[in-house]
Design a protein around this nucleic acid. Sequence first.
DNA 1: ATACTGATGGCCT
DNA 2: GGCCATCAGTATA
Length: 191
Amino acid sequence: MSKTSAKILPPEFFRRNAVELSRALLGKRLVVIRNGERLSGIINETEAYRGKDDPASHAFPGITPRNRIMHETYGHAYVYFVYGMYDCLNFTAEDTDVPGAVLIRSIIPSEGAEAMERNRGRVGTAHLADGPGKLCRALGVSVASHNGKPLTKESGIFVEDTGFPVGAVEAGPRIGIKKGLEMNWRFRFRA
DNA sequence: ATACTGATGGCCT
DNA sequence: GGCCATCAGTATA
């Protein structure tokens, strides 16, 4: 039996408008290699963040130490720490020197679910990785270990196309922000 | 199901 | 010093 190998998305995949990239990432598989093990899940919820045209974006005020990678280049991990407790994972988008990123809000666990349960200190796949902070805990993603890394096999964090069928996509306002609520830049599909 | 709240610390002006 | 791109617990329905 030969298993059809999933294709790793190349950097060029991310080189586009963050809003378009948000939609395009739905159904793709996020993979993190941890202790030699593949931890992965299908991306089912994302949010787009841009630059000067987006008051909710970390990039809105201009370049700062934290958001630097959002401006510099596409196809990299932008990981930030919020609320004193949680890490959130984004993929940088747009062309070089144009700010933009996609926040990964939720994944449906596929490989390594048991390790994810341990990482989360919780039993069962329900609500294991259905939030930006939760999925980082589950996958072991943090600022220290992943921020600024290119999304490649060598980095141990990348995205694959497995041909997962995405049904109807719903768009709505982004979560947890107070500005930019008029943009429907949150996307998701139901499994 | 929705609504509220405390925890907890880095980032930015 | 104020503001968070969050979550788990609790309460209420």
